[in-house]
């Protein structure tokens, strides 16, 4: 086992700032660095750890400057870099946001922050598959996080549902730690980057295409996954001990919606190219905007959001 250290960062005091950044993933952390460097006061608040969903990525091979790095390590570097500039309050969930004149009062678990601007970098969470057995067997073999739970299946066979990049990386990670994965993809072709297709083939990971998962079976724990072969219409069953679900993401935009921020019909926050939302002094960046689900793009959007907030705050003061 590797001994890593993730440092805590725990702001405890309520305060007034120029901008509250909600979410400490790549977008929020980057926004924090840019905001402080521009001369704004800021705090980043996150309900969990800094790092966001990037933490769950077993490895990242397309972030500029890193040929290959564990998501966890990249997230730690981001966080340590950001901590040099900006206060990050972790395990501090924002419960409510209310308007007070031209300020926003951001009410979080550990404190209240009064701000002139808000950047939503709230990201996404895992989408459910919505098939029988998924809820019933959650925690009994059904999981959404390979880095969390992969170890429990060493020496066993599991299905990874969803063959996009996240699913492909999950399968590769599982194979590397001694689990036997089979990927089940709905579409009739590989849905991940070619770089992952190559690794999947090289490692001999089974990747089933054109398959619609219809049920996860098991009494006390997962025993099999059932799918319909979309070519033939035939129903097939694979015996597995676990199922990891990677069928996409849903945006966490409820708080934003509450203060009138517009989203598209899937719930992603609508932003201008400069990351403004429809509500003045409210910005969004990263996966919650639904642009690409890529760390490098989230970081770029975070930077843009902070720069725009700076521009707007300065203009308003002028």
């Amino acid at each position: 086992m590797e001994v890593g250290f993730v440092l805590p960062s725990a702001s405890r005091e309520s305060r007034e700032v120029d901008v509250v950044i909600i979410g400490a993933g790549p977008a929020g952390l980057s926004a924090g660095i840019y905001a402080i460097r521009a001369g704004l006061s800021a705090i980043i608040v996150d309900k969990g750890n800094a790092g966001g969903l990037a933490e769950e990525a077993p490895f990242v091979e397309n972030y500029l400057g890193f040929e290959g790095i564990k998501g966890e390590e990249l997230a730690k570097l981001f966080k340590e870099h950001a901590m040099k500039y900006v206060e990050i309050s972790e395990r501090n969930e924002v419960r409510d946001i209310v308007r007070e004149g031209d300020r926003f009062l951001v009410k979080a678990e550990k404190g209240e922050y009064r701000a002139k601007a808000i950047i939503f970098a709230t990201g996404t969470t895992h989408r459910k598959l919505n098939v029988p057995g998924e809820n019933e067997l959650f925690g009994k073999g059904v999981s959404y996080c390979v880095t969390c739970d992969g170890y429990f299946f060493r020496g066993k066979k599991v299905a990874v549902i969803g063959g996009g990049n996240s699913g492909a990386i999950a399968a590769i990670y599982l194979k590397d730690i001694g689990v036997e994965p089979v990927v089940i993809e709905y579409m009739p072709k590989y849905m991940c980057e070619k770089a992952y297709v190559d690794i999947i083939n090289e490692k001999g990971i089974e990747y089933i295409t054109n398959a619609m998962v219809t049920e996860i079976k098991g009494s006390d724990k997962v025993e099999a996954v059932v799918y319909k072969d979309r070519d033939t219409g035939e129903t097939k069953e694979i015996k597995v001990d676990g199922v990891f679900i990677y069928v996409g993401l849903i945006p966490m935009s409820d708080l934003a919606k509450k203060i009138g921020v517009e989203t598209d019909k899937r719930g992603y926050i609508k932003v201008s190219p400069k990351m403004r939302t429809n509500v003045p002094m409210v910005y969004a960046a990263g996966d919650v905007t639904g642009v690409a689900g890529q760390i490098i793009i989230a970081a770029g959007q975070g930077a843009m959001a902070a720069l725009t907030a700076y521009e707007d705050l300065m203009l308003r003061q002028a």
């Binding site: 890593g4 440092l7 805590p8 405890r12 972790e90 678990e109």
Partner: peptide, 25 residues
């Protein structure tokens, strides 16, 4: 072992135990 992500929990615990309190609503 409180390693990996749990290392940060341990540090936060040290701080709270030293303050003899913790935050809840």
């Amino acid at each position: 072992l409180p390693s990996g992500y749990e290392f940060s929990s341990m540090i936060e615990d040290i701080i709270d135990v030293s303050r003899r309190t913790a935050e809840v609503s």
